[in-house]
Amino acid sequence: MKPVTASACVLFAIAIAIETVVWITFLRGLKSRHPEQWMHAAQPARWHDRTVLSARSTMLYLLTREFMGSIDEAGARYCSRYRAILLLAYWCTVGAGIAAVVALAVES
């Protein structure tokens, strides 16, 4: 594997790790501090190890600012605070993934 390809793959793995940490931190805070907002975000009522959560659905919820339609004002402020960092982490992961796929394709 060429150094550029290896670097792109490592960058992608790091981006995924950072996005996951930020996303899980956001979700834990949302569920514990703002349960009404959690339900408004259409997250599962019971979240445990085997519950499937979707980063994409969370990002769409934040991207479209659906959280503003909630009656939980504190929850909406919480979502607003995390919105920029979550979207940045998500799109950096997408970009790093595309770069890794392109690097792998070019190397072949």
Rank of each mutant, 00 (worst) to 15 (best):
V4R: 02
V4N: 07
A6Y: 12
S7E: 15
C9Y: 01
L11T: 14
L11D: 14
F12D: 06
A13K: 13
A15I: 03
I18W: 06
V21R: 13
V22R: 01
V22W: 01
W23S: 02
T25N: 11
R28Q: 12
L30S: 00
S32D: 09
H34G: 03
P35Y: 03
W38K: 01
H40W: 04
A41D: 01
A42G: 08
A45N: 06
A45P: 11
R46W: 08
R46H: 10
W47L: 14
H48M: 08
D49L: 15
V52Y: 09
S54N: 02
S57K: 07
S57Y: 03
L63E: 11
R65D: 13
E66C: 07
E66I: 02
S70T: 09
S70K: 03
C79A: 11
S80E: 12
R81M: 09
R81C: 12
A84S: 14
I85Q: 02
L86D: 00
L87V: 07
A89W: 04
T93H: 07
V94C: 05
A96N: 01
G97V: 04
I98E: 01
I98L: 13
A100N: 02
V102A: 12
L104T: 08
L104M: 09
A105S: 10
V106A: 10
V106M: 11
E107C: 11
E107M: 14
S108G: 13
S108N: 11
